[in-house]
């Protein structure tokens, strides 16, 4: 009995000793703030395969919207550059930050409704960071997020007015719609940390100031699903990644 207890005690001491040595080896710990050197993760999201035919948006329900798009409008579901770069992919750290916590920045993120379309199409922000929703149209909209990990609400917004909102919990991504104008659909990606980006027109993204460590990087697209890669970055290093999304057309 006594021997067994001693073995357990010994094992515990060894574990504590090893754990205690971790920071000395240069590994960042949750408590001692940002490491002196940080890493950059950048790269591109690409689209492969046959492109889906662009979906034309029917704005007949509201002539005040339709007249702002005399040439017609196509949906922003899948936007790929001629070189294959995929726009509107949310790239972020999904695992590896441990129990670090980050305060949301005080400045708000703005989303505009103009021409009965959301801009930007993908809003990314931090949990509890303010989102200013602006209505620059001549028509009333309603702001209706459909979250699964945050509160659902639905507010009318008259022309020229603002709606301020915050989302308390991480969620990638909350569908947002306007019921009055059914073609209006966008996504709000909410993060508990600052390591996320939305790909630009060429499909490029960059995550800066990442503490050295092992991470899972996830790329999420509203129609094409998600893709993950496991990486390891060191202080001052730059890691290049490529995420490839295949066409789901014909499936």
């Amino acid at each position: 009995m006594k021997g067994k207890a001693l073995t357990v005690l010994l094992a515990a001491t060894v574990v504590l000793f090893v754990a205690g040595r971790e920071p000395a080896r240069g590994r960042p710990s949750a408590n001692d703030g940002p490491a002196p050197g940080t890493a950059v993760v950048k790269g591109i999201a690409k689209f492969e395969g046959s492109r889906p035919a662009p979906t034309h948006i029917n704005m007949n329900a509201d002539p005040s919207c339709a007249k702002l798009h005399p040439g017609g409008l196509v949906s922003e579901d899948v936007l790929a550059s001629p070189e294959g770069g995929l726009q509107n992919v949310v790239v972020f750290v999904s695992e590896g930050l441990g129990d670090r916590t980050f305060d949301p920045p005080p400045q708000p993120v703005t989303m505009e409704q103009k021409g009965c379309v959301y801009a930007p199409h993908i809003v990314s922000l931090r949990a509890n960071q303010e989102l200013d929703i602006v209505n620059n149209d001549a028509t009333t909209h309603n702001i209706h997020p459909a979250p699964s990990n945050n509160r659902e609400w639905n507010k009318a917004q008259a022309p020229g007015t603002r709606v301020d909102a915050t989302f308390a919990r991480e969620e990638i991504a909350i569908p947002l719609k306007c019921n009055i104008h059914p073609w209006m659909r966008s996504y709000i990606a909410v993060f508990k940390h600052p390591f996320f980006a939305v790909t630009d027109k060429a499909g490029n993204f960059e995550l800066k100031n990442l503490p050295p460590g092992d991470y899972t990087i996830e790329a999420w697209h509203e129609k094409l699903g998600k893709s993950i890669q496991k990486i390891s970055v060191s202080a001052g290093g730059t890691k290049e990644l490529e995420f490839v999304f295949k066409s789901t057309a014909g499936h």
Partner: peptide, 14 residues
């Protein structure tokens, strides 16, 4: 207050 879960929004701030 709006009818949450339906398209009927709240006009409380408007």
């Amino acid at each position: 207050t709006g009818l949450d879960g339906t398209p009927m929004p709240s006009y409380g701030e408007q």
